[in-house]
Amino acid sequence: MIQTSVHSITGSEIHLRLIFDLPVSYPSCLPNISVSSEELTRAQCKDLRDKLLEQATQHLMEPMIHDLVVWTQQNLNNIIVVPESSTLDGHNPLSLDTSIDEAPWTILIHLDHMRAKSKYVKTVEKWTSDLKLCGRLMFLGKIILILLQGDRKYIKDYLVLQKTCKVDVDSNGKKCKEKMASVLCETTLTQVQKRFSTFEIKEYSSVIDLQQDFESAGLQTIFTQFVQPLF
């Protein structure tokens, strides 16, 4: 059982409980999956379960649980539709209005580690340049964060690159894909939030310095909810 949460496009949190029942022959066969959430209807949970099973078919013969959880965090907002007459914990209902895709988007990614730091950083810089994304690659001790802003379509493209390309090396020095990245938060850019004009690499000497950078960009809520728990 894995419990996770996803920051919805309305600013609320959706808490999910994902249960994977692994047969003896796993991963050569699909796991049994069940989904539950107090914020979602049964129909929505079933829809998410069906989508997860579709994704699982793409990972036969290889461990897939981590990939399925990451996929859920990245795609829940795209597959959940709430009727116009309903609300979610007092917030506006979720919507897949295409106008959202046109609004500036902000996403915060947490990386577990970088073994080949120089190569990894150069790769991230190239991706953000190619996709016209702005933001920060932030280092504070062992904490590594990537804050991206830009068109939602290009941010989705970045996440695909982050997941599918060999950007780091494993403990044996062999090139490997990023398996430990997690999306902490994704949301539209509000009027009180600053839109970065460039993508920068920043090293911080203290938590206070990191917090001040978030606050100066109007992202103090994101820092409090998603960054502070990492320390």
Rank of each mutant, 00 (worst) to 15 (best):
M1T: 15
S5W: 04
H7N: 08
T10R: 05
S12P: 01
I14R: 00
H15E: 05
L16W: 01
F20T: 10
D21A: 09
L22S: 10
V24M: 09
V24R: 15
Y26K: 10
I33F: 06
S34Q: 14
T41Q: 05
D47W: 03
L48R: 02
L53M: 10
L53G: 01
H59L: 13
E62C: 11
P63A: 06
M64K: 02
M64S: 04
I65F: 04
H66D: 06
V70K: 04
Q73V: 05
Q74L: 08
N75I: 03
L76F: 04
L76Y: 03
N78Y: 12
V82A: 04
E84Q: 15
S85Q: 14
T87S: 15
L88H: 03
D89K: 15
N92A: 07
S95N: 05
D97S: 13
D97P: 01
T98F: 07
P104L: 06
T106Q: 07
L108G: 00
H110V: 03
L111D: 01
L111P: 01
H113A: 14
A116K: 10
K117A: 13
S118Q: 13
K122P: 01
L137G: 00
L137P: 00
M138P: 00
F139P: 02
F139H: 14
F139G: 06
L140S: 07
L140T: 05
I144H: 02
I144L: 03
I146A: 08
L147P: 02
L148W: 01
Q149R: 07
D151G: 12
D151Y: 10
D151F: 08
R152G: 01
Y154E: 08
Y158S: 07
L159S: 12
L159C: 15
L161T: 05
T164A: 11
T164W: 05
D170G: 15
K177R: 12
E178L: 09
K179T: 07
A181S: 12
V183N: 02
C185R: 08
E186T: 10
Q191L: 06
V192H: 11
R195K: 15
S197I: 13
F199H: 08
E203N: 14
Y204T: 05
S205A: 12
S205W: 09
S205Q: 14
S206I: 05
S206Q: 07
D209N: 10
L210R: 07
Q212D: 07
Q212M: 11
Q212Y: 08
E215D: 04
S216W: 09
A217Q: 06
T224M: 14
Q225D: 14
Q225W: 09
Q225E: 14
Q228N: 11
P229L: 04
